[in-house]
C-alpha cells in the first residue's frame, strides 16, 4: 500500500514538559488511524505537529514521499493536510461560506474592482454540504455560524476540510460534542471518505467509535508511543491496558 504520511521520531517540549518524545507514526492511503491515550498523552500535540500549528523540536515529517517542513497551518493545508479541531475553529460571526473559504477566499471583479466572490462561496458551500449529505437549511447558510447547532457546526468544519480535497484529514474528537444520531452521521462520513481514498487520523476517547471506524490504532502515553495494533487483531481490554500501563 501507498504510504501517505510518515512521522519519524518527533519530539516536542513545552518548557519543562516533554509533550512528545521520539514518536513515530505512519499512515497508508485510505487508511483510518485512531489515536488514543489518556489526557495529556500527547495526542493533540502530535496532530498539531502534523497540521503545522507546532513546529517539532526534533524529527521529520514525510508526506507523499516528500520531506516537508510545516512552518504554519497554511503550508499543511496547501499540501492537502486538513484538520478539524475539537473546538472546530469556526469564526462564529461569519457565515457558512465565509468559514469554508476562510484564508482562501475566491475573488472576482465588479466594475473592474477586485472583490471577494461571496456568491461563489455560497453556491460552493451548498454543493459541498450536499455531497456530504449534510442538511443545513438554506436560510441559515447566510447567518453567522454561531447560530447553528453543534452538529451543523461540526458539519461546516468537515465541509470546510473536504472542500479543499484533503488527502489527509485529521479529526480531533469529532464526535465528542454531538448527539447520538449526529455521532453516527460522522462515523458514516468517515467510512465514506475512506472509500474515496482519503486517509484519516482521528483522536477519540470512545473505544466503540475506534473499533467501528478505524483500521489501526496508536496508543500514546505521557508523550511516548505505548503501542500500535491492527484493529482486527486486538480488543478493547488490550487497548485500555496500553493506555494506562504502557
Amino acid at each position: 500500500m501507498n504510504k501517505v504520511l510518515d512521522v519519524k521520531s518527533v519530539s516536542k517540549r513545552f518548557g519543562g514538559v516533554q509533550a512528545l518524545n521520539d514518536v513515530s507514526i505512519h499512515l497508508n492511503e485510505g487508511e483510518v488511524l485512531a489515536l488514543a491515550g489518556d489526557n495529556g498523552a500527547g495526542k493533540s500535540t502530535l496532530i498539531k505537529v502534523v497540521s503545522g500549528v507546532y513546529h517539532p523540536d526534533d524529527g521529520n515529517i514525510i508526506f507523499n514521499n516528500e520531506n516537508i517542513q510545516l512552518d504554519n497551518p497554511r503550508f499543511a493545508r496547501e499540501k492537502g493536510i486538513e484538520t478539524i479541531y475539537q473546538d472546530l475553529a469556526l469564526a462564529d460571526n461569519l457565515n457558512v461560506g465565509a468559514n469554508i473559504f476562510l484564508g482562501r477566499e475566491p475573488m472576482t471583479t465588479k466594475l473592474g474592482v477586485p472583490i471577494i466572490d461571496r456568491e461563489l462561496m455560497l453556491s460552493e458551500s451548498k454543493k459541498v454540504l450536499k455531497n456530504l449529505e449534510i442538511n443545513i437549511p438554506e436560510s441559515s447558510l447566510e447567518e453567522p455560524v454561531g447560530k447553528l447547532s453543534g452538529g451543523q457546526r461540526q458539519a461546516v468544519a468537515i465541509g470546510r476540510a473536504l472542500y479543499w480535497n484533503a488527502k489527509l484529514l485529521i479529526m480531533d474528537e469529532p464526535t465528542a460534542a454531538l448527539g447520538v444520531p449526529e455521532q453516527r452521521n460522522v462515523m458514516d462520513l468517515i467510512k465514506k471518505l475512506k472509500e474515496q481514498k482519503v486517509s484519516i487520523i482521528f483522536i477519540s476517547h470512545n473505544l466503540t467509535d475506534i473499533f467501528q471506524a478505524s483500521d489501526r490504532i496508536v496508543v500514546l502515553r505521557r508523550g511516548i508511543k505505548a503501542g500500535e495494533r491492527i484493529i482486527s487483531e486486538t480488543n478493547s481490554d488490550e487497548i485500555v491496558k496500553l493506555m494506562v500501563q504502557g
Binding site: S51, V53, N72, P73, R74, F75, R77, T83, Y85, D87, A89, L90, A91, D92, N93, L94, A98, N99, L102, G103, R104
Partner: peptide, 13 residues
C-alpha cells in the same frame, strides 16, 4: 475573522 475567533484565523493560515 480575527475578531470572531482568533484561533480560527490562525488555523486557517
Amino acid at each position: 475573522a480575527l475578531g470572531g475567533n482568533r484561533q480560527a484565523a490562525i488555523r486557517s493560515g
